[in-house]
């Protein structure tokens, strides 16, 4: 019980910090279920006349289902593509071959180019590919992430070299070695790539803003921004919409916090 006595100054700082971190969540949740005029002053600290009416209004006044399905489709495309493409590249990098250094150099230098620095030509390329205003056009730049390639490579490298060798000697084709031996044993890397790809694609805004024109291919962040610009002064329905857009991300975060953190700090641990 010695420790609990010594702990109180730490809690004295961390509890207010936690409250500060949580207040924005509370505030938007409170606003979204406030039944009366949200512009009343002073604002009520507790939701007055709590109501789900705003959610109903948000659902009907905007094509929420369309945005949501589009977001899910983009995320799904990106996740499947990342597992296949990044695992394949990561597996290739566990071999020794001529030109490997060059390939590594290409990956590492691509890592130094933020996507934001490529938007203009990327837009022109997407136009040339005929992918403007399509879900594939939104998802394509997310199809491979270098950090995930390296996470897959590290996880394959950690498996005993004798596993693929044994399979190879038994005559198992190379691509089956990857799919049936290596990939099932790289489950943590798969989980990490699913979580990170989800968060990155789900939250992506700038790129859809550039390549999407129509409502029926918009994703949730685009829909949110559009809603904001239609109704210059905000309505409670906007905040209901915000909550609905945040929930899937929060769920994924709570379900897979460990994988998420491991993926993000993969670089930090190497250093």
């Amino acid at each position: 019980m010695r420790s609990r006595n010594a702990d109180w100054p730490v809690h004295l700082i961390l509890i207010p910090v936690s409250i500060l971190m949580l207040v924005p969540f509370y505030w938007v949740l409170k606003t979204s279920i406030t039944g009366e005029n949200i512009f009343a002053y002073p604002p009520s600290i507790l939701p007055s006349d709590p109501h789900l009416f705003n959610y109903v209004e948000a659902w009907y006044s905007i094509p929420f289902a369309t945005y949501f399905i589009n977001s899910i489709l983009v995320v799904f495309l990106a996740i499947v593509a990342n597992i296949l493409i990044d695992a394949a590249a990561g597996y290739a990098l566990t071999f020794h071959f001529r030109g490997k250094r060059l390939i590594m150099l290409i990956y590492l230098s691509c890592m130094m180019i933020p996507f934001q620095a490529t938007i203009i030509p990327a837009y022109l390329i997407t136009v040339n590919l005929g992918l403007v205003n399509t879900l594939l056009g939104i998802a394509l730049p997310h199809f491979s992430h270098i950090i995930l390639i390296f996470i897959f490579k590290a996880s394959f490298d950690a498996l005993p070299r004798s596993l693929p060798e044994a399979a190879r000697m038994d005559g198992v084709p190379e691509w089956r070695i990857l799919l049936q031996v290596m990939l099932p044993l790289a489950r943590p890397a798969i989980a990490t790539s699913v979580v990170l790809t989800f968060i990155w694609s789900w939250n992506d805004f700038l790129w859809p803003l550039i390549v999407v024109r129509d409502d029926d291919v918009s994703t949730l962040p685009l829909g949110l921004a559009r809603f904001l610009s239609y109704f210059e002064d905000t309505t409670a329905a906007l905040y209901a919409f915000v909550v609905m857009a945040l929930v899937p991300g929060i769920l994924v975060f709570f379900l897979a916090q460990r994988q998420f953190i491991e993926g993000l700090t993969a670089g930090a641990r190497k250093g």
Binding site: P160, S162, E165, A166, A167, R168, M169, G171, V181
Partner: peptide, 17 residues
């Protein structure tokens, strides 16, 4: 390639899947 050599190998770490 090893698969066509008609040999089988037992590895030090057994290499069990």
């Amino acid at each position: 390639p090893s698969k066509e050599r008609d040999i089988a190998m037992v590895f030090q770490d057994y290499a069990l899947y």
